[in-house]
Design a protein around this nucleic acid. Structure first.
Lengths: 89, 89, 89, 89
DNA sequence: GCTACTCGGAAGGCGC
DNA sequence: GCGCCTTCCGAGTAGC
């Protein structure tokens, strides 16, 4: 073997095809699972909507709950500051 | 009850708290699972990198593999489109 | 002319190619102008950033200013209502 | 001045109101121009429709025309990619 | 740290 | 008129 750049080289192939294939398939499988979850989430929103809830508002609630309270209040402060700057001259 | 916006209204509360809470928690749970999958994917990339593979290239390959079917069908669509545009009016 | 489905038919071509081409080119031209404006906007944000402003906050300010005040307060009300429902049991 | 966050601070105001206002108004102006262009485009489609063309098909054609260059270069990229993946490690 | 890319959400247009 | 689908915009993430 003239040169060895690490474990990817087996001495047989330039790239270890089997290993590459395995990595790619694992990732693609995980991606599919993610996609499936996205669809599940969509369904839940649809169900909530069917029960009379406002989907957009639920999204905002979830967004708020996921945010760090400190960061959030910092942002609010800045927004108020900017709005004040716009309103005060 | 003065107004009825549908099943979300129980006659007791303005909004059905328990139901709302349930929907939100289901969604948040699914979101966490998605996040976990994203981390798994990241780990697989890290592992591939540790085995000497080029992460950027793997990303690109996966991206293209996932797009290819669309590309194909788009071309089909284009052909049909022109045929329709020419023949159908 | 055996059949006439409207002005698009000239009696020469099934579709009026010249006209079709003209419409398409007009639209594509307008799209390019839109794209150019998007780039201009991006530049302005960059300039604001270079002058020490928080781009994300400016975006929010613009968003707020563009919204109908009534709709906005309605949304706020609903958010508060939902949050209360979550907090009150 | 207790702290200096850069050019946005003048020593007089927490934020440079005039500058902020200027940036925001520039952006809002550009947004309006974009919106106007969107309306123009909509009008052109309406006109095409009035001349017997199928709007949906025109949209599709424009979409595909705009994607084609990307597709081509993506395919080139793919080839290079595989070559790189195979040859360069 | 900044830039570029990808993903998710929001809005608008189209069909039923 | 409502729901579906597509397109556009903004946010977050990863790479240079």
């Amino acid at each position: 073997m003239a040169r060895d750049k690490g474990p990817a080289e087996t001495g047989t192939d330039e790239v270890n095809s089997g290993q590459l294939r395995a990595f790619i398939e694992r990732i693609e499988r995980l991606n599919e699972e993610k996609k499936a979850l996205s669809e599940d989430i969509k369904e839940v929103y649809g169900e909530a909507k069917g029960n009379g809830f406002d989907v957009k508002i639920i999204r905002k609630i979830i967004s708020i709950r996921s945010q760090d309270p400190d960061k959030r209040s910092e942002e609010e402060t800045l927004i108020d500051l900017y709005l004040a700057a716009l309103g005060a001259n």
